[in-house]
Computed example of a mutant assay.
Amino acid sequence: MIRVFNIPALTWTLTAILLAGGTYHLWQAARSPHLTDRVNNTLHTLMNTLMAAMLWNLAPSTTLAQIGLLAAAALWFIIQAVARPEYKLLCAGTQGRLKCAYHALTMTAAALMITLMTHPTTTTPTTPANQTPTPMPMPMAHAHHTMTTTPTTTTAAPLGHTPALLLTLLFTTAALTFLILLLRTPTTHPKTRQHHTRTEHALEALSATTMALMFATTT
């Protein structure tokens, strides 16, 4: 498991949130009559699944493929956000374009997070050039083992304070925005459009909170 947090319970909680969001988007993709909506929801399912897998360092050999898929997803949402109004199947209206632009940013941030957290940097003890290492006495029982192994320390690649802080603030703002939208949307019957919108706002708020917490731990 990649120790994004020192509290395992919090990692489990974030994993559950990501998988719950992915399951919801998968359900939406299966029941949507529009191809664009099915693609968009499938991409969200993919992103949530990859982020959950990243928390536990699953399938590290496919890192490049994961980053490529998320980058392609980000490009797809950018295309929708800047598409001409004639293309009715893509993001339409100011609100729709802003939503697609935000999703493009989310996909890009997920790709960045996977890049940072799955590419460890290895550090080894260094000796000044003008100083000769002094051999230390050791028991014979450990001498052969020490000659054949070199201790290393593996740490996650640093992101840098400024980019991580900006992304943390951005996703914190997004979480608050979706929470306000959730509270402003009236509670209605489960089968109405308003109920569906409330569910989307709740999931977006949870997803943004998760991203904010993950980037906050990289500072």
Rank of each mutant, 00 (worst) to 15 (best):
A208S: 15
L75W: 01
P133D: 07
P135V: 00
T148H: 14
P125G: 03
R38V: 04
R97W: 03
L43D: 03
L213N: 10
N41F: 14
G96E: 02
S32Q: 14
D37E: 15
T23Q: 15
R184L: 15
M136N: 07
T108Q: 00
P133N: 03
W12H: 10
L159R: 11
T108G: 01
T199F: 07
T126L: 09
T146L: 05
T173C: 11
P133M: 01
E200S: 13
T127S: 03
A29Q: 12
P186Q: 12
N40C: 14
M107L: 00
H195K: 09
I79G: 04
T121H: 02
A164V: 11
Q95C: 04
W76V: 04
R184F: 13
M147Y: 11
H34T: 14
H189D: 14
A83F: 01
T168G: 13
T134I: 04
T122F: 02
I78W: 02
K191I: 09
A65W: 06
R3V: 01
T118D: 00
H44W: 10
A74E: 06
A174T: 04
V82Y: 06
A164E: 12
A208G: 12
A202N: 10
Q95G: 06
M138S: 07
H142F: 08
T154P: 12
H201N: 15
A143N: 01
K191P: 10
M107R: 01
L206N: 10
T123N: 04
T108N: 01
L18S: 06
M113S: 00
T177E: 07
A65V: 10
L35C: 13
A129K: 08
L182V: 03
T121L: 05
R193W: 06
G68Q: 12
T177W: 09
I180Q: 10
K88I: 05
P186S: 14
T210H: 02
R3E: 06
P8E: 02
T185V: 09
L69H: 10
L159C: 15
T108A: 06
I17V: 13
T209D: 08
W76C: 02
A143T: 05
P151G: 11
N48D: 15
L58H: 11
P186R: 15
T62D: 13
T126S: 11
K191E: 13
W76A: 03
G93V: 01
T155P: 01
A83M: 03
T148A: 10
Y87N: 12
H144D: 15
E204F: 08
T219Y: 00
M54Y: 03
T197F: 02
P190H: 08
I79L: 14
E204N: 14
P137W: 01
